[in-house]
Design a protein around this nucleic acid. Structure first.
Length: 577
RNA sequence: GCGCUCUUAGCUCAGCUGGAUAGAGCAUCGGUUUUCUAAACCGAGGGUCGGUGGUUCGAGUCCACCAGAGCGCACCA
């Protein structure tokens, strides 16, 4: 139940009636009309700009139109306490207590669906995220995209969409060969005491490879680790499986579970790459040609060569993209084309890809391919998560893959915990770089928004505990005819914004709006709570250790909104802290 | 050189797809605990929304140009 949308419908049907009776002229397009939250310094609940939109065509000032409209609006709505016109021509409405009683009743009895965007068409989504190379455990850099993807899924699921979460396993190509070689050398180190060549920069030096090597030795006693070429294929499968085990464990400790893992090697094996490229050739979108050197590049070093190219310039990319390497094997892009074709064949309504900032340049070519393959625009949405700058003790902290001194997800979770990581990573728009300060995130104080919101829920729980009620049980109130104070209505207004928050978060795939909303709601609640210090009548529990129904249902709906918000974010709401 | 993203208070950032007097937190200064949880609250100071033009009833928000920061620009994934 979105009160802003409901009122917008009301206003629109009202002006339509007026126009039928020839009392007012309407423009062709009514989309400009909206019903919004007024700034807090105006003492009213909702406001609308109708009169500004109607002003031009009626050749009257917005104020005059507004004066005309408020009489009609008021006489059509018994829930209005006060209606007024403000400066440029806004119509401001304040509701009476009957309205807020109905609101609170509605929210309490349908709390499970409060906030769900019911007008959105239910769709089938495929969201691909993380997809880090299976060459070792995840590190901090992967976290943001992982959490972003997970919470976007949660929002879509909350809105009753069908969502499939997928991880694309890049188990094909040079870096995998290097990885397998590194595992092989670690095995040799263990079995034959041959020193691992740490000076070779192509290899993976990390200590986790020793564990992987040990596991493989333990479980595969029959394999003869003499000749790399003889066993490289089998060893790749084993090594990737070990990596994926680590990655899945990392994801699990972040609270993330993917529905499906798709292997690049499998796509290549099934000839899906050839098939899709043949198809694109027939559509004249793949051809043999040359790529010119970018301006920056030293032209003497540039080797121009005929190769298979995809015509992404047809779709606005700056150059066509290579599909084959000079050894004729497929490029990463080629198998990604096949992967996206595979996605499209599974009949999803929308595809979502979550990418890291360093892959942002990749978006154009992949959206081009999806457009070419599906003949549809906007079938795929790519969402970029910007970098996370790590800060430790007030100083930037650089990770180096070379030295192997990067912070893994496991380190992060043991140090700051899953909930704090998720909440902090989401507390900013994904479009901006994020400072992740270890010392601050660990602090259990007001510096940390997670605890601020959790504390709000814990305070409400403590009231329920004191009056011996279960906060998790449904609350049945027989009669709603309460009188709420201005301070309480302020919070009810904030509650009424929850569906709007969800709507925008889901429409624009911006999950950060949820933690921000929860913080604001908590702030208003804490403020209200402290009123009880000076004024005993504002306390929830009275001197007879009882709580009245109005306060009880008021607390209940706040706690429900916090709980469903925190569920979407994927963090706990402890009843005691 | 090209592309993408960003620029809002001393610092870190919100700003609901164009609305009213631009908001939080931190930091600074000053207050509130015989109390349902002080992990909280209240108050004060702090702003040319990077710059210049444009679009319109109305711009932090949209467009153009300029400046600055980050990321990317092979047959690496």
């Amino acid at each position: 139940m979105n009160i802003f949308d409901l009122y917008l419908d009301k206003i629109i049907s009202l002006v339509k009636t007026l126009s039928k009776d020839d009392l007012i002229k309407l423009p062709d397009n009514l989309d400009g009309i909206n019903v919004d939250i007024p700034p807090s310094n105006f003492n009213c609940d909702i406001s609308t700009n109708v009169s500004m939109v109607l002003s031009k065509i009626n050749k009257k000032s917005p104020i005059d139109i507004a004066d005309q409209l408020i009489k009609v609006i008021k006489s059509n709505d018994s829930d209005i306490e006060r209606i007024s016109v403000a400066k440029p021509g806004f119509i401001n409405i304040k509701f009476n207590s009957k309205y807020w009683n109905n609101f609170i009743k509605e929210v309490n009895s349908n709390y499970k669906n409060f906030g769900v965007n019911s007008k959105e068409k239910k769709q089938k989504y495929l969201i691909e995220f993380v997809s880090a190379n299976p060459t070792g455990p995840l590190h901090v850099g992967h976290c943001r995209g992982a959490i972003l993807g997970d919470v976007i899924s949660n929002i879509l699921i909350f809105n009753k969409h069908n969502v499939s979460k997928e991880y694309y396993v890049n188990d094909y190509g040079n870096q995998i060969i290097n990885f397998t070689k590194s595992v092989f050398l670690r095995i040799r180190e263990k079995l034959n005491n041959e020193k691992f060549p740490t000076e070779n920069t192509d290899l993976y030096p990390g200590d986790y490879l020793i564990d992987i090597a040990n596991n493989i030795i333990q479980n595969n006693k029959k394999i003869n680790f003499e000749n790399f070429d003889a066993i490289s294929k089998d060893l790749t499968i084993l090594a990737v499986a070990e990596s994926l085990k680590l990655i899945k464990k990392n994801l699990q400790s972040l609270g993330i579970v993917h529905d499906k893992f798709i292997s690049e090697t499998q796509l290549v094996k099934n000839n899906e790459v050839e098939k899709v490229i043949d198809y694109l050739k027939k559509k004249k979108l793949v051809y043999e040609g040359k790529i010119q050197a970018p301006k920056k590049e030293d032209e003497t070093k540039w080797i121009e060569r005929k190769q298979l190219l995809f015509k992404s310039t047809n779709y606005g990319d700056d150059k066509d993209r290579a599909l084959q390497k000079n050894d004729m094997s497929w490029t990463y892009f080629a198998s990604d084309v096949a992967y996206h074709n595979n996605k499209l064949n599974r009949n999803f309504d929308k595809l979502i890809n979550i990418l890291g900032a360093d892959h942002a340049g990749y978006i154009k070519r992949i959206t081009s391919v999806v457009e070419a393959l599906s003949n549809k625009k906007n079938k795929i949405i790519c969402k970029v998560s910007q970098l996370v700058k790590l800060v430790k003790d007030g100083k930037p902290f650089k990770m180096s893959k070379r030295k192997g001194d990067y912070i893994t997800v496991e380190d992060l979770i043991t140090e700051v915990g899953k909930d704090a990581t998720r909440f902090i990573m989401l507390n900013r728009s994904s479009d901006v770089e994020l400072d992740f300060d270890f010392t601050k995130v660990k602090e259990k104080s007001k510096d940390n928004p997670l605890y601020y919101v959790q504390y709000c829920y814990a305070r409400i729980s403590s009231v329920f505990r004191h009056v011996e009620l279960d906060i998790n049980k449904d609350l049945n109130v027989k009669k709603y005819n309460f009188k709420y104070s201005d301070a309480e209505i302020k919070i009810l207004k904030k509650i009424s914004e929850w569906p709007k928050c969800i709507e925008v978060a889901s429409l624009r795939l911006e999950p950060h709006r949820i933690p921000i909303y929860l913080y604001e709601l908590s702030s208003e609640f804490h403020s209200y709570w402290n009123l009880g210090k000076d004024d005993e009548s504002k306390r929830f529990i009275n001197d007879k250790r009882k709580i009245s129904d109005d306060k009880l249902v008021f607390l209940k709906i706040i706690s429900n909104v916090i709980k469903s918000g925190m569920n979407i974010v994927g963090v706990d709401t402890p009843e005691k802290m």
